[in-house]
Nucleic acid binder design. Structure first.
Lengths: 342, 342
DNA sequence: ATGAAAGCGCTAACAA
DNA sequence: TTGTTAGCGCTTTCAT
């Protein structure tokens, strides 16, 4: 179908060449910003292109060895608020550099991600941003060997062979815990994230370090393992609330599980923050909408996306630049869900 | 760069042909499911492809006149919860049909969307889903003329030349208003959406009709114009609350503005739902997280996405199928933000 | 049932 | 500074 219509309507580089009376490689040069073109020629070509409404054909361009001007982003799914913000940041930055965005979700291809990634990086995209939480060693390795530009978001891979953007997870948890301690809390429960993820572990460690630095004992039963999801937060909070020595504050490893915890707290007939303080992590948009507004540790998600996009474009345009890691600062955002214990 | 690496590592159809000892057009046939290929040949080829880890090159395929197996989705931005759900639905459905998803945001290309759309539909994608709220007449017309497959989401274009997926906006608003009336409310404020949008107008009309059907007067000052955003909802609610005859319930045209209104209500020292009931529209994920949980009119957003994806694939695979409109039912979701007036 | 060859729109040597 | 030409990987006639 599309094939036929193309002929009718969409002008190619050849049409532009004919219109402007030069060879079509000259048109290509002009369009690619090649330096040594006579100004008058350039103008003729540009004018003709404008007149004809020429738009480049990305696949032809990329097939011929040029850039596709598409970057891919591989995410687990869109259903957690967290990713949405990152994608937004990426898109914002890419708009400036005139790259298009191809969105891939991994949940569609359980098991054969590796082949999937090959397909993506096989000319369709110039670079790839991976927001997959688990370290995807297999294909990251493949990408590196092929020297295909990519950036990881929120990964702990310390090999410094990959470019990575992340946030200060440890410090954020430390700061949040300290904030609760300074409010006067002594019994602080902690709901972990999925401990397969480095970010979850780092947050837990930050919490522990803060307790220890303030000479508070670490009660093992105050740490309940969960999975970063709302339902998990609900259950974890229930466990915490059932404790004989109930915590006066709960630190949830992300906002989503904090919401679950808030629900559990209310279902117990307790008020937030009067009876129990709660703090989250991430600062997804919902955090400011929830009631009470959630005090949380802000990860600059959109900015992480923006930085990742910038780094990726750098890599694409300068393949030899070495990998680097950028760690953005988290920040305690004080809202209404915490107060001193009674 | 990518160019060089390709040679090293990524097998093409030619490699598969060599490996299996047939011509590469035969390989192409097998890969495209062409019927008349000897079974033994097919197996040889498939086996070789598998062994080599062959993945098709989408641009080459599409350049040569085949399908790209990519569908594009054009959205205003990712920052409203609403779109995210739709995209999720689309992605879910597309996973089944093995199409990839290209995400385009319009805010990047103010003014020259038309050319942008040309670029997208110029072979890069096999079809396009448009979630742009304002009717994009210019390029929709262009798409139709080129017979390029597309589906609109949430558009009112009644020409029945375009395939459209939407929801029962009028009915939803009617039902919601009736629900409030049945709770006993007589003074019901209404916060509109951006009235340039048909969905906003439909919702307003549904509200009016419900009042009228129940012999309630329509007080002009109870209808405050807003824009579907949280800040707008806040202001609109303020206006409503300042009225001498304050409404006992507020219908917000979408959840986001309902959240804004809730904030304003609380800032006035009023409680929800004890002092004032509020109902939203959309049922974005935040609605169930907010406190009190928001009673709202559910639009099946993810399902709208799924249906749109299905329709689009149908159109791609059968270009002659006539356009059609699918309107999905809305539904009152009763949570905790409404109660009878005191 | 299979092979040979043309060509999709473009970039990038190589000439001129 | 510009034109000529050879592919990029694939689909699709047209032969065989």
């Amino acid at each position: 179908m599309a094939k036929d219509e193309k002929k009718y309507s969409i002008p190619t580089i050849v049409d532009v060449a004919r219109e402007s009376g030069v060879s079509y490689s000259t048109v290509s040069r002009v369009l690619n910003g090649y330096e040594f073109v006579r100004t008058s020629t350039r103008e003729k070509v540009l004018h003709a292109a404008e007149k004809l409404g020429y738009v480049p054909n990305r696949q032809a361009r990329s097939l011929a060895g040029g850039r596709s001007n598409v970057i891919g982003i591989l995410v687990p799914g869109l259903d957690n608020g967290y990713i949405g913000e990152i994608v937004r940041g990426i898109d914002e930055d890419l708009a400036k550099s005139n790259y298009d965005l191809m969105l891939y979700t991994t949940h569609r291809h359980e098991g054969k991600e590796s082949r999937y990634v090959t397909s993506i990086t096989n000319g369709l995209t110039d670079g790839l941003i991976l927001v997959v939480p688990l370290i995807p060693t297999a294909y990251v390795e493949a990408l590196r060997q092929r020297n295909f530009p990519y950036v990881l978001i929120d990964q702990s891979d310390m090999s410094d062979k990959s470019s990575i953007v992340d946030a200060t997870n440890w410090q954020g948890a430390y700061d949040g815990t300290r904030y609760l301690i300074q409010l006067g809390h002594r019994r602080i429960g902690f709901i972990t994230g999925l401990l397969d993820l480095a970010s979850a572990v780092d947050r837990l460690e930050g919490y522990k370090a803060a307790l220890s630095d303030h000479d508070l004992p670490l009660q093992p039963e105050w740490v309940v393992e969960a999975d970063f999801w709302q339902a998990g937060g609900y259950q974890a909070a229930q466990a915490l609330l059932a404790l004989p020595q109930r915590p006066t504050a709960i630190f949830a490893s992300n906002d989503l599980s904090a919401f679950g915890a808030m629900e559990a707290i209310r279902d117990c007939g307790l008020r937030i923050p009067e009876d129990l303080s709660i703090i989250g992590f991430d600062d997804i948009p919902q955090a400011a909408i929830a009631y009470p507004k959630l005090t949380t540790i802000r990860q600059p998600l959109a900015q992480m996306g923006r930085v990742a996009a910038q780094m990726l474009v750098e890599h694409i345009e300068n393949p030899d630049r070495p990998a680097r890691r950028v760690t953005l600062a988290t920040q305690v955002v004080i809202r209404d869900s915490c107060q001193p214990p009674r």
